[in-house]
Structures are given as structure tokens and as C-alpha cells.
Amino acid sequence: MKILGKITITICGLLLLFFTSDFPDWGDVNSPASTHLSPYFIEHTIEDTAVPNIVTSVLADYRGYDTMFETTVILTAGLACFLLLRIPRKDSIHRYYRHEPTGVTIRVEGDRYPKGSNVFTRIDSSWVPYDLIINFTCRLLIHFIQLFALYVVAHGHHSPGGGFQGGVLLGASVILFAISGNLRAAIKRFGEKTAAILSSTGVFIYAGAGALCLFIGEQFLNYSALGPLLGTDRIMARSHGILIVEIGVAMAVMAVMIWIYYNLSSAGKQDEGL
């Protein structure tokens, strides 16, 4: 069976190589890909959408419909992880508590220990001692990461960037927080419910903006329709529309990343984990 698989893969690879024989040359200006549609985008992007970054305008406007569903794919992944992994916390689980003054760890069955104690803190079963350097560095970095993320989201019109990249950075900042401290602390600040609702809200902003255009009387996702609403002309409205959906994408990507992280790192219990 293994050999069969290897043979199949080899054949597939060879076929792929063989059929590249009549590919256009690398970077050929006369290749169909550069002559058929690309000229249109290069020549018309500014006058159509007032966005200097052609990639952004193709991504979020000309083919914005695709991107909306790419965002939905991410949400779907989050929902799938939740549906498959999430298991409600069981009551009869044992937990570990650390007596801060002495460093003694005790194991408690169930939820019997009174909450709000300041001498005992709950710790994970795979606890490692507190590391000041890591913790401090991360906390310091997180704010800058988030600030940079917002820049990336907002600056997608002009330079590489946009909702996906910014969202990933935002999500990473929270995950970094969880890694540097512990999962419970992260969940306390940015709960699962928040993550879940933000993720669908993010996509909803995208799809809702599109639907709004539809209700105003233009095609779905035709941001020109938002012109009167935003107080701009139809061309600028497209540019603004792109920003709106980028924000939605960023929100969704961030929340889904965090949500998936919560579920994966704690095997769905969200009780303890990395």
C-alpha cells in the first residue's frame, strides 16, 4: 500500500512536470495571464476604485465576493473546531492549587476550594515556574503588536497589508498573552463568547455591507451604493467600502484565531492549557 502511494505520487509529480512543457516563459509579458485581464486592472484601478494598491482593489472589490467567502472559510474553521472539540467542563475534575508563600502544590478533587483566596492560586497540571523576563517582554510587545496590526489593517489601500494580515497580528497578540501567562488569564480578558460573537460579527460586517448595497438598490457588494450614506462620490465610496470590509475581515480573523487556539490548546475543555 505504501509503495502504491509512492508510485501514485511520483506519477502525479511527473505528469505535473510534463504538462508544464508548453507553459509560457517565466515573467513573459506576452503570456495570456499578463495580456488578458491584467491590463484592465493596471489601467483602471484608480479610476474605478480610487485605491492605489491594485492587489487590494482586486482582492476586496473586483473579486471581493471571493474574499467574503474566504473570510467565511475562516469562520467555518472556527465553528468546526468549536463543534468538534468543545466539551463542557466536568464537575468531578481534580485541580491543582499552589500555595504562593511556600510553593506547596495541592491537588483538590472537584470544585471544593473556595474562590477568591489570595494565598492559593490555581495552576495547570503542567505548570512551569513563573518567568519574569518572558512575561515582561511579552506584555511590553503586545501593545506594539496590536498598534502595528491596526496600521496594517488601515494601510492596506496603499501598501501590502489589509484585514487578513492585521487580523492575524491581532490574534497573535492575544495568543502571545495566553502563552506567556496562562490560558485562564487570557480567557478572563477575552472570553470564548466574545471570540465567537466577534468572529461572526466580523463576517457579518463584510456580508452586511454587501447586503446594504443590495438593499439600497445596487448589486450585492457594489460599494458605490454607499456613496450617499458615507457622504462621498461613487468612486471614493468603493475605497471606503473596502476599508469597512477590511475591518470586518480583521475582526473575524482575529477572533477565529483566538477561538481556535482556545479550543486546540485545551483540547476543548478551556480549563487549562498552554
Binding site: 486592472f41 472589490d61 473586483y62 473579486r63 465576493y65 471571493d66 445596487e218 448589486q219 457588494l221 457594489n222
Partner: peptide, 11 residues
Amino acid sequence: QMAGWPAPVGI
């Protein structure tokens, strides 16, 4: 036409 773009350009 999604987003109001005609065929080969848009979706």
C-alpha cells in the same frame, strides 16, 4: 454581477 463588475473582470 457581484459588486457590479461585468464578466471577465468581476465575478
